[in-house]
Structure formats: C-alpha cells, structure tokens
Design a protein around this nucleic acid. Structure first.
Length: 469
DNA sequence: TGAAATGTTGGGGCG
DNA sequence: ACGCCCCAACATTTC
C-alpha cells in the first residue's frame, strides 16, 4: 500500500460497499473518512426534521462500520476541507456527486480550491444508474417525457457491476473531535419514538430490506403496489436517498430475477427516480418554478385553515387523513396514498403545490429534492409528463378500491375503527344510529368533510379552465 | 398512475 | 309475439 492519505468525504453515500469514491480513496492508501454537517443558510434547502432524525442514526451505523473512526464536523465544507488537507497533509479528496443545484456550484468551488492548493480532487457517480448528462435526445437536449427517457437510458451500456471494498486503513479522529450527538440532529421534543418503531437504519438494514423485497414483495409488485396494506412496495426510498444502498446494487440484484411485468414495473420506478434527477439537473428551478409556465397564472387559494387540516390529517376524508397520519407517525407514506393526498391538497383544497412540497420535505425520511419536487409538479399537473390537471382523485372511490378491507385506514384513524366498511370512507353518509353504534360523534371525534367533493372538484376544473387562452 | 357524464347494448318484465 | 321501458353493464367522451 502506498504511503499516501486521502479524504473520503461522505455525503449522500452513507455506505461502504459499491462506493466508487471510497474505493478509490482506499486504493490510494490511508483514508480519512469525513462527514460534515453543513451550515445551511438557505432555508429552502435546510434538512427537515425527519431527515435529521434519519441522518443521526445513519451516521451512527456508518461510524460503527468504520470502527468509530468517522470524523465528524459541522460548518462550511469550503473552509473545513482545505483546512483538513493542510492539517493532515492530505494528497487527494474523493467524493460521490450530488445533484442539487446549490451543491453542484459549491462542489465546483471546492474542487478548484483544492486543485489550486495542489490537492487532487475527484468526484464519482455513486447515486445514479445514469447521470443526467448521459441520457439526452439526439439533438442533445434533455427529455421531458418519461417513457422515451427511460427507453433511451435502458438502451445505454448496461449498468456496471457494483464495486466491493477490500480493505480500509483509517486515521483516528482527534480526541477533541465532535461526536454524532454533538450535531444535535435529534428533535428536542422526542416525537421520534414512533419513527424508530418503523425503521432499521444503515447499510446492513438496507440490504435486508432489499432481500425481503426480492423474496416476497416483487412477486406481485405491479398490482400489489397499489394497495397500502400489502407488502409489495420496496420501502427502499430512504435508503436510496441517504445512499445506504446504491441503485446499482439494486439493479444488479434484479437482473438475476426472471424479467416479468413485475420486475419491469419496479425497474421503471427506479427509472422515475433517475428521471427526477435529470429534470432537476436540467431545470435547476424545478423545486420552485412550474415547469409548464402557463401554471404561473393559476389561481391558488391561500387558506391556512385548509392547510392545517390537511397537515394534521383532519380533512374528514378518511383515506386522506390516514395517509397524512402515516406520514406524521412513520416518516413515510405509501405511494398510492401520496397521490391521493397530493391530489386532494392541490385540487380539492386548491392550495399551491409548494405547501405540499414543504410539508413532505419536513416529514419524510426519504425527502429528496429531485423526487419531491418532480413528484409534486407531477401531481399538480404543472410538471414534466404530468398527470393532466383534470385527473382528480376521488378519495372515497380510491379508499374503497385500494383499501377495501379498511385495514390501512383504521390503523391510522383508530377513532373510525368500529365504523362498518360501507361507511368507512364516507362517514358523513352514515346514519345517526350507525355512527352511535360505532361510538363516533361526527364533528367531534372525527371531523366533517372540510370541503364538498363535487363542489371542490368543479371549482378546481374552473380554476384550470382559467389558464386556457 | 381518474372520475363523471354520456352513449350503447342487451336481457327481462310487462302490458 | 311484439314493442316498450328500465336498468345494469360496458364503452366512449369529456373534463
């Protein structure tokens, strides 16, 4: 082994296996493994509370895998990394690329600084199957429609095999180094117990979640993924976001399974993640600006009461409220239900998709700038390849169709647990007798509908019509 | 990766 | 037997 020292700068790649930058650092010699909690001045990009909670545990797990030798810092990487390089006489700095616009700019500055200081700086692809500049149309412009994007991407040279890490020779952190606890990532008011019940965090956990999905979930993925009570979704999104698993590791494992409709559908879901990153890269304003400009004139309402009802799961529509409470309690929401609550916020309540983006950003353990922004634009109808605006989900029908047994809804809305299936998704239709029998006083134990479905649907369609010239 | 309105068809009850 | 109506079931159109 050569007698050199490299920094591996951990970011959204909190794993040891299939980590291109880390493997490279390890091959160069000794490694200084660094995590920097960034001082984020732009509130739009500051981590949400659920993300901070996950990060705390993910760092714990990573630090354990590194024999407690992870170097923890807090502050501005532009300053910290050059200082570390001088302090430890570091020859090279390696990291895996991130694609948030502010990070792309910032990383470029750091790379320049390091090169000027005579330090080698090199970045790698550790988070995507295809980087945004690798999937372009014939005229070098980027795709705005998913299907051709995914077709083009899939036709590219096959995703390479994951890298393995042979041996790591690490540098001990100094005695006065920060601990993970010093980062104060956990909430002061300890609301996180219900999150902890739902997740195992870290690289090993990610592999076992994948293993379980491949053994059980994927068999009926195409159909089963629509039913929030079934265990057909992978729940890999937070692990992917934090890089506890790489998409390449998942892709490779899938290749060994017989390619049927279920596998194809799951692959295309990984494709949607890639598509979101491509959109964010080529349209850096994706988190803010409507991709379809005509939506700039959309007459959104401003109604804090509506918003609060939605956030707290008190809209009076059980499938919507169940989803919002699942989000609050577990840091996650089943994808089908995300579409239902999204449609409800943007269409029935006529509130700006930015409100949904912000709430999800704060509550989701898989909060991801690319996926979150692209998905809210999709459901709002203003995005790329979006759901047409007039596609408005009916929360009663959706509940009856996708949670027919009511198990999901009753799990998160226990006050409705004794209401018969027939009225579970429309409690306001139940007679006084039925409600009394179920022990429910509507408007008291559970809210009356915050808006009328038919009227709010028509209001949304009117609002949409106003955009047409 | 909708839902509602509207249109069409065909079986069966009934005068 | 026949026409008429009703309506479920399905298909198409519209938002």
């Amino acid at each position: 082994m050569k007698n050199t020292l490299s920094i591996h700068w951990f970011r959204q790649d909190l794993r040891l296996q299939d980590n291109p930058a880390l493997s490279q650092a390890a091959e160069h010699g000794q490694v200084l493994p660094v995590y920097i909690l960034e001082q984020q001045t732009d509130a739009r990009y500051a981590m949400g509370a659920a993300s901070r909670w996950w990060l705390h545990h993910s760092l714990q797990s990573l630090n354990n895998s590194l024999n407690g030798q992870l170097h923890i810092y807090y502050g501005d990487p532009e300053k910290i990394i050059p200082i570390l390089c001088r302090q430890y006489n570091v020859q090279s700095v390696f990291w895996n690329r991130c694609y948030e616009p502010w990070r792309i700019q910032r990383d470029a500055v750091i790379k320049n600084t390091l090169k000027q200081n005579g330090v080698k700086a090199q970045s790698f692809n550790g988070s995507l199957l295809w980087e945004p500049w690798q999937v372009l149309k014939a005229d070098s412009s980027s795709y705005r429609v998913f299907t051709p994007f995914f077709r083009k991407a899939s036709a590219q040279q096959p995703v390479g095999p994951p890298l393995s890490l042979s041996s790591l020779s690490l540098i001990d952190p100094p005695d006065d180094a920060l601990s993970i606890a010093d980062l104060q990532l956990l909430p002061e008011v300890r609301w996180d117990n219900s999150l902890a019940d739902n997740w195992r965090i870290g690289e090993d956990a990610a592999q076992s979640v994948l293993q379980d999905f491949l053994q059980n979930g994927i068999k009926d993925y195409k159909q089963g993924r629509n039913f929030p009570i079934k265990k057909n979704v992978s729940r890999l999104s937070p692990y992917l976001h934090w890089g506890e698993i790489s998409p390449r590791q998942i892709w490779q494992r899938i290749q060994s399974i017989e390619l049927d409709d279920n596998v194809q559908t799951f692959k295309s879901e990984l494709g949607w993640r890639e598509f979101s990153y491509s959109l964010l890269y080529h349209f850096p304003e994706l988190p803010e600006k409507n991709l379809q400009q005509k939506f700039d004139a959309f007459p959104w309402r401003d109604d804090p009461h509506y918003l609060k009802c939605w956030q707290q799961g008190l809209t009076g529509y059980p499938i919507v409220d169940a989803g919002m409470r699942e989000l609050w309690q577990t840091g996650y929401m089943h994808n089908r239900v995300r579409m239902i609550v999204g449609s409800f916020l943007v269409k029935n309540l006529l509130l700006h998709w930015h409100h949904g983006r912000e709430w999800f950003w704060d509550c989701l353990v898989d909060a991801d700038l690319a996926s979150n922004s692209a998905s809210w634009q999709w459901i709002a109808g203003c995005g790329a390849d979006a759901a047409p605006y007039f596609r408005i989900f009916n929360p009663v029908t959706q509940g009856e169709k996708f949670d027919a047994s009511g198990e999901y809804t009753r799990r998160f809305i226990p006050e409705l647990s004794r209401l018969p299936d027939k009225y579970l998704f429309k409690p306001w239709m139940a007679s006084e007798d039925v409600l009394a029998e179920a022990g429910i006083r509507l408007g008291d134990d559970y809210p009356l509908p915050v808006v009328d479905l038919k009227a709010s649907r028509e209001r949304a369609l009117e609002a949409f019509k106003s955009l047409r010239p």
